[in-house]
Design a protein around this nucleic acid. Structure first.
Length: 215
DNA sequence: ATCCCGAGGG
DNA sequence: CCCTCTGGAT
């Protein structure tokens, strides 16, 4: 691997030594539900409601016993509650019908579940099962492009580029440190380039303070 | 007011 | 490809 990209990885790892999935979960199934809930919402907010949710719903079968309306009320504070409730119930239906109620470990099967797309599948596969996967969500996309790690204009292209640069064993950690960087410093609107160890190498580094940045 | 760690549908 | 769906944070 290119020295520069090795250095980027090292710098970010040192900066965010405990970057990890911030969702609280005990089982792959809980992670699947939590990840579905996390769309357009902070992990902290998901973590507020999941203890009670997981206490009441322990298996995919349990979610088939509840009405969508009631489930919507239970998850309302996470936003997009209609979609998410539908996704969770649909997902559990398929898990029960086609997967013996067990969350599959591979990306293809995970993505076949209703309400589970590329990002959710990658998050579950990598965090719950250690499957090398890099979910190019908006943070990863933005950060990877800003620091010149990838040039592609779609998440798919960026994913391919990044996966080509870094060895599989680093994908999961890379995913987490890019996300943390995106959340802590490399914000969509006002990135804090003053604090960023990557600014020297970054095409879009802002020297001043509050200017806006594209991508 | 505006944006967000997404997915499905038109 | 573009739209919609949501509450919450800023």
């Amino acid at each position: 691997m290119d020295k520069r990209w090795q250095r980027v990885f090292t710098l970010l790892s040192e900066m965010y030594p405990d970057a990890r999935c911030e969702l609280n979960y005990e089982t792959p199934f809980e992670l699947l539900i939590a990840t579905i809930l996390s769309a357009q919402c902070t992990d902290q907010r998901v973590n507020i409601i999941t203890p009670r949710l997981f206490q009441r719903f322990r298996s995919p079968e349990d979610y088939l016993e509840v009405s969508q309306d009631e489930l919507e009320d239970l998850i309302r504070t996470c936003g997009l509650y209609r979609n998410k409730a539908r996704s969770i119930i649909g997902c559990c239906r398929v898990l029960v019908r086609d997967f013996q109620g067990v969350v599959p470990r591979d990306l293809v099967s995970l993505e076949s579940l209703p309400g589970v797309g590329r990002k959710t599948a990658a998050v579950v596969a990598s965090n719950a099962f250690g499957v090398p996967a890099l979910a190019v969500d908006t943070h990863v996309f933005r950060v990877a492009r800003r620091i010149g790690l990838a040039r592609g204009d779609t998440p798919e292209k960026v994913e391919a580029e990044v996966c080509a640069i870094y060895p599989r064993e680093q994908w999961i950690e890379l995913h987490h440190i890019l996300i943390w960087h995106g959340r802590r410093l490399c914000h969509a609107r006002k990135p804090d380039c003053e604090q960023c160890p990557l600014a020297a190498d970054c095409d879009q580094a802002i020297s001043g303070s509050a200017r806006e940045v594209s991508v």
